[in-house]
Design a protein around this nucleic acid. Sequence first.
DNA 1: ATTGGCACTCATAGGTCCTGAGTGCTAGTC
DNA 2: GACTAGCACTCAGGACCTATGAGTGCCAAT
Lengths: 347, 347
Amino acid sequence: MVSERGLAVLRAIVQDYVSTREPVGSKSIVDKHHFGVSAATIRNDMALLEDEELIAAPHTSSGRVPTDKGYRVFVDQLADVRPLSSAQRHAIEIFLGASVDIDDVLSRTVRALAQLTHQVALIQYPSVSRARIQHLEFVALAPRRVLTVLIADTGVVEQRVVELGVDYDEAALRALRDAANGTLVGMPMADAATTLPTIVDAFPESARPLVGELLGSVAGIIGATKQERLIMAGTANLVRTEHDFTGSIFPIMEAIEEQVELLKLFSEMAAEQHGVVGNRDVSVSIGRENEPFGLAETSVLTTGYGAAGGAVARLGVLGPTRMDYSTNMAAVRAVARYLSRALGDQA
Amino acid sequence: MVSERGLAVLRAIVQDYVSTREPVGSKSIVDKHHFGVSAATIRNDMALLEDEELIAAPHTSSGRVPTDKGYRVFVDQLADVRPLSSAQRHAIEIFLGASVDIDDVLSRTVRALAQLTHQVALIQYPSVSRARIQHLEFVALAPRRVLTVLIADTGVVEQRVVELGVDYDEAALRALRDAANGTLVGMPMADAATTLPTIVDAFPESARPLVGELLGSVAGIIGATKQERLIMAGTANLVRTEHDFTGSIFPIMEAIEEQVELLKLFSEMAAEQHGVVGNRDVSVSIGRENEPFGLAETSVLTTGYGAAGGAVARLGVLGPTRMDYSTNMAAVRAVARYLSRALGDQA
DNA sequence: ATTGGCACTCATAGGTCCTGAGTGCTAGTC
DNA sequence: GACTAGCACTCAGGACCTATGAGTGCCAAT
């Protein structure tokens, strides 16, 4: 079993290794941290930590480096999440200050997070499918051509141009708009999708083809997978930390750009964290845990965000396993709160 | 002066260096290309090319490498633009096949271009300010809250939520919509912006505050700089070509992500190319020419695109100066044509 | 104008040696 | 039982040397 001091040694190793990228030796530990014991004692503790596979030696006779498991213990038990400095808070506020629409808010937020953490920052686009309908509109563009606009209560606006097989008149569009809004406004998307067909019944036979086509476009918007995407910033930071990866960062960058695997990881983390609150609200996936997503050697920190408590989606950062977890977790949490508040303000 | 054969030697050096990344020596030239002369003769030609600063030797006694100036001559005089293979054309068509809206078209296009060239691909978002108005809509969301939607003939839809200082009724919104559309549809954005204030005059005194606020939001959308942005793909490719840069690619990636400098370069290239058509429709900016934009050591190839001949914006690729200009120019041109056609189809 | 020949350059790769940080272990101390 | 001092051992990395060979510039000959 690992002693109390043993864990303190692990913490010291993680901290030193993160800040210097050099394997940490027993001597440098007694120098920098004031344990009241000699290097030999530390060495004994380190041997124990090595037995537990919390640390490892890159070469037979060199200092030690935390393993994925070591980082895991550090994050779960040892990391102190220190709050951001007031300068940092100030920076966030400046960044998010004058945002006009939701895309603007998100892109400013993601850039702020990247700047704060010096890592790749990620924001999952607020999923239309998890929001509620705020308004529907059908805009006459040309004969047989209508623009369907769906506005979610998250502030997200989705639109699609529909080529109709039948003619329409503006009165019919208005009638449909009023009927659809009357029924659907405030409804979660999932319910709305099932309710859509029932609206058709309220219309006279003659109008049904038109109504059917238009409501179909609404269903298309709701069902579209398009909204499952990530906004990102700071990918250049991966290059900065290139030396922390054994191989090339090329496959990692590809995976990030591809988004698909990353989205899977995001939703997995969301599922895992369901119900977790309080101090451990930032969930962390470390190194080999990410291997199925092509992201071994990276760590991903995420947390949920969303107006009024309900988590609409997640945001977080990605970087090498050798990263400053304490600071980054604090940044992720703080930014999520700012974003949630900003969304609450405008929605 | 550089002889006819001298230029052929330059072409050979560029081609060999691009494909091998090794400095090219006189012997390897006579081996691979069948000039009917000896290595010594080639050496004389190379000395001449070096005097003209078209090639340079990295070390006193090693093969030669093209300079920026050498690439420039190659691109302007020596590159044969070979058309894409049918497999490549097919790939593009598959990629762009089932696109639903303009964002989808653009993101598929940019990914296709990245895949085709193995470089960073860039598409300037079709500028609203250079398009014409197709439709305006004001959507009632809540008391004192209206969504203004502007649809451009490029298919771009921009929207903004307006918080009103006065109440409105739906009839007023409809009246304004009809009046505004009657006046503005088909008008270039720039003209529309100046015409907007005159619309107010047609309304009775009592409606003017409302009309003023709403038209102001339209002006805001038209004037917003937001639309000046780039969509990109394949940034991972920059990592792949990392060895082609003397320093770190970190600052380059930062500049790309920042977009600002890149947009300046794009508009500069657009200005330069004004009126150029035919075989030289892809413009190329090489190496040190990009220094003011923080992009020394990179080359940028761009061309205009847009429905119905009018260039709405530009697209292109960015990569190390050591790139396959022939192939990439062909890809940029082909993709621009496909995109223009796709936009024509739907707009 | 072109070529064969030749002396010269110099980056790279491989080999050897040395140094020093760091380890594990053992025997001794509190 | 916990800690410590001492010591032999390991091994990555740097310094230094040498050999190799691709490539050059130049000159005299064709």
